[in-house]
Nucleic acid binder design. Structure first.
Length: 573
RNA sequence: GGCGUUAUAGCUCAGUUGGUUAGAGCGAACGACUCAUAAUCGUUAGGUCGGUGGUUCAAGUCCACCUAACGCCA
């Protein structure tokens, strides 16, 4: 038994995430966590909400709530939706937790002691009306290059020219519209990650089995242009973790907070602390997952994220851990994903384009979405959601191949032998061939799951389901029954055991349906079927079962068309 | 402009360190079966592996250049 620490990139607090966000991190992380648990390994699967920063403050203001209250509410909303999707976090934490405050300040102190923090004086735009410094993108004005009047302080969206806020003509706050702006000098802390460039480079080089997507992004940031740049890790905001040197004040940094990108990854660690607290355990309980001097040296740590998060996880966060000089557990495998597009374009939160997690659950059970998303995960390149593909895939794979298999074998048995596994007959060449094929396929499926090859795993699982239908078609117990009822009984017995096998193997992908299959077969989820032959003998003659209701109702053409229209992002109804 | 990813049958994609007739699922056509959510199973469908030029006894699989899509950065 191994120990697996698994984290999903933590979703930002300001709203409900869309399916693209889901498939890029939380869902594959859940797949892996469920699989590892099913194999009998010890798993700690953590996720949290990323709560700090300007967008959270603005979203709270828009909602008319204090930011702390807004974040608490949205955390509850995201937690409920995650639960709806069957995301099996051991803990769903918050980056605003006391644990993260303490840990973030601790890391900053350690980095300062190591000489890896420097102060930089910068000029930033202050808005008197908003009583705050404005990030570049929250300043609007007329582009000096093309005259577009809604250019942002970082870039003009019309002519794409890169801008400084001070370049803008008639600059105004994007928040209040106020033009009462002032350029002020302010000091910030920078993480000198360029000092660690060599170490990070060597570390990345040692990760030969990471996805190309991951290492190519990391290498680019390390070597592109002038190489790895130092990053500001503080901001002039109210909402965040106050800049302190451990428990002590940080002279000159009063009223400032750490930048969200500094504290967010630290939440992976803090979240383990939150988990320990929530489950009534002491610090040693979480430290054995995170401190290699306190029991974590045999932990295998895997992170899941979309490609936009890779630089922070391969460079900035490791720089923080290495720079601390303390024995923190570093990531062992970093599985990254490309983007999921929606029907010819990108998912868009602002334009309401695409499908959001809460809406998805309002249409169909989570298993439908899990199956489509995982079996089409954007691993090698961006992939695209279309309603036609979704309907076709879930109807064919889930309803026709898996659902119908369980249905046909249980109903056949009920009509000929009653609702218990029939006795009599024995296995012959057909059964041996089936068991041999399944042994081979289950081994390959397990290999693919170990390797986090999501699409390939899904494909292999589907092939395993198809084996059940192929077997029934080949031996045709409905025909055998007429001439040799004992032989038909043996075939049916094997068929029912196949349902048990499928229920177990499918659990990481479609946990609810798997649960229903196992319940109707009246068995608990037990061991992983490494020995297929032995596993297929677990339901003995006489074992009673129930015929389940339809496992997967099909998506109709009418529903597909209605949803396609409803989620087009065109004129809102 | 720099960099990266991708470009394989109508569609979605597999194709280990280069090596016999390039594979799967879906769709399509035909056939079988009738237990089942009109579900299933089988057979077939002949794609110059984006283009050009190289390396090699041998390249979809390595190299160079080109083209296209997407993305990141400046």
């Amino acid at each position: 038994m191994a120990r697996h620490l698994i984290t999903s990139a933590i979703p930002y607090i300001n709203g409900i995430k869309h399916l693209g966000n889901l498939v890029g991190s939380q869902l594959p992380a859940d797949l892996y966590a469920r699989y590892m648990r099913a194999r009998g390994h010890e798993v700690l699967f953590l996720c949290a909400t990323d709560e700090h920063g300007t967008p959270a403050e603005l979203a709270a203001a828009k909602a008319g709530k204090p930011v702390a209250e807004y974040c608490a509410d949205m955390h509850a909303v995201q937690a409920r939706i995650a639960d709806g999707f069957g995301l099996s976090f051991d803990h769903f934490g918050r980056s605003s937790s006391p644990q993260n405050h303490a840990l973030t300040q601790h890391f900053a102190a350690r980095l300062a002691e190591a000489g890896l923090i420097r102060e930089v004086a910068e000029k930033q735009v202050y808005s008197h009306a908003d009583k705050r410094f404005l990030p570049d993108r929250y300043i609007e004005g007329t582009c000096p290059n093309c005259g577009y009047d809604k250019a942002r302080g970082d870039q003009c969206e019309n002519c794409t020219k890169q801008l400084d806020p001070t370049d803008l003509i008639d600059a105004r706050s994007a928040i209040s519209g106020s033009t009462d702006l002032e350029v002020r000098e302010t000091k910030h802390l920078y993480l000198r990650q360029s000092e660690l460039k060599g170490e990070l480079d060597a570390w990345i080089d040692s990760k030969r089995d990471w996805p190309i997507l991951t290492t190519s992004i990391a290498k680019k940031w390390l070597h592109d242009g002038d190489g790895l740049q130092d990053r500001g890790i503080t901001r002039d905001l109210d909402w965040g973790i106050p800049v302190r040197k451990g428990a002590d004040p940080w002279p000159g940094m009063e009223g400032k907070v750490f930048y969200v990108w500094f504290d967010a990854p630290i939440e992976y660690i803090a979240c383990a602390g939150e988990w320990a607290e929530a489950t009534g355990q002491d610090d040693a309980a979480w430290e054995r997952w995170w401190r290699t001097d306190k029991g974590a040296e045999d932990v295998r740590y895997t992170q899941f994220m979309g490609k936009d998060n890779v630089p922070f996880h391969t460079l900035s966060f490791p720089a923080t851990l290495i720079g601390s000089g303390e024995p923190w557990k570093m990531v062992d495998h970093l599985k990254s994903f490309n983007y999921l597009n929606y029907d010819g374009g990108q998912f868009s939160t602002s334009q309401g384009r695409g499908i959001f997690m809460d809406q998805a659950l309002g249409l169909l059970p989570a298993d439908y979405w899990r199956w489509w998303l995982l079996s089409n995960a954007p691993e090698s390149s961006d992939s695209e959601f279309t309603w036609d593909s979704f309907q076709n895939t879930v109807n064919k794979d889930l309803a026709d191949v898996l659902g119908n298999f369980v249905s046909r074998i249980t109903k056949f048995c009920r009509s000929k032998f009653g609702e218990a596994v029939p006795d009599g007959g024995s296995y012959g060449a057909d059964e041996a061939a089936l068991i041999a094929e399944l042994t081979d396929r289950v081994a390959r499926y397990s290999e693919m799951m170990d390797a986090m090859e999501v699409r390939k795993s899904a494909r292999e699982l589907r092939a395993i389901w198809a084996c059940g239908n192929e077997y029934l078609q080949r031996v045709a117990p409905w025909s055998t029954f007429k001439t040799d009822p004992d032989q038909a009984a043996a075939q049916t017995r094997l068929g029912l055991n196949l349902a048990h096998l499928f229920g177990t193997l499918s659990a990481p992908f479609v946990p609810s349906a798997s649960q229903r299959i196992l319940e109707s077969m009246r068995v608990e989820m037990t061991s992983w079927p490494d020995d297929v032959e032995a596993f297929l003998a677990q339901l003995p003659a006489g074992h009673s079962f129930d015929v389940p209701e339809v496992l997967f109702a099909k998506v109709t053409d009418d529903a597909r068309e209605e949803w396609k229209a409803r989620f087009s992002g065109a004129a809102p109804a």
